[in-house]
Amino acid sequence: MAELLFYHLTESRLEEALPPLLEKSLGRGWRVVVQTGSDERRDALDQLLWTWRDDSFLPHGVESAEHANMQPVLLCNSHSNANNASVRFLVDGAEPPDLVSYDRAVFMFDGHDQEQLEAARGQWKQLKGAGHDLTYWQQTPDRRWERKA
């Protein structure tokens, strides 16, 4: 059963918090898929990951591109797992696919967006009710992650 983590963004935006988590995942040898709530968000993250730091980029692709199956990080707006990822990030309240094939699923939501907060609460309730073990992480004022539940 997948390890399910909820990451509550309170001090930074997704564009600031996601790349370091993806980098950490790649450093552990994991393949990752990031599911967004829209094509526009997917495309914006695609651009961001090429330029998020001056001295490097995160190797990635989008689900519709050639060789999507070879990408260490795959961005999608569907339930696709073309790169056979073991970790799935869900952003913008994206509805998860069946998570049985993943080692870890990370739900990231913006604490300043009421719609995302409500979606995360609903997902938490649904997954908890289905018997999954969940952990809840919140950003501290210095933008570190602290386990709250």
Rank of each mutant, 00 (worst) to 15 (best):
A2G: 10
S12E: 15
S12C: 09
S12V: 14
R13S: 12
R13G: 11
L14K: 14
L14A: 13
A17Q: 14
P19N: 13
P20R: 09
S25G: 15
L26M: 05
G27S: 12
G27V: 07
G29E: 15
G29Q: 15
V32F: 14
V32I: 15
V33N: 10
D39P: 06
D39L: 04
E40V: 13
R42D: 03
A44W: 05
L49D: 08
W52E: 04
S56M: 03
P59F: 00
H60L: 04
G61S: 11
E63Y: 04
S64T: 12
A68E: 03
A68H: 08
M70F: 00
L74M: 02
N77Y: 03
N81L: 00
N83M: 03
N83E: 01
N84K: 07
A85V: 00
F89W: 05
F89Q: 06
F89M: 02
D92K: 01
G93H: 03
P96W: 06
D98W: 00
D103T: 08
A105R: 12
V106K: 05
F107R: 07
Q114S: 10
E115A: 15
Q116R: 10
L117N: 09
E118M: 04
A119C: 08
A120R: 02
W124S: 05
Q126P: 01
A130K: 15
G131T: 09
T135S: 14
Q139N: 10
P141E: 14
W145E: 12
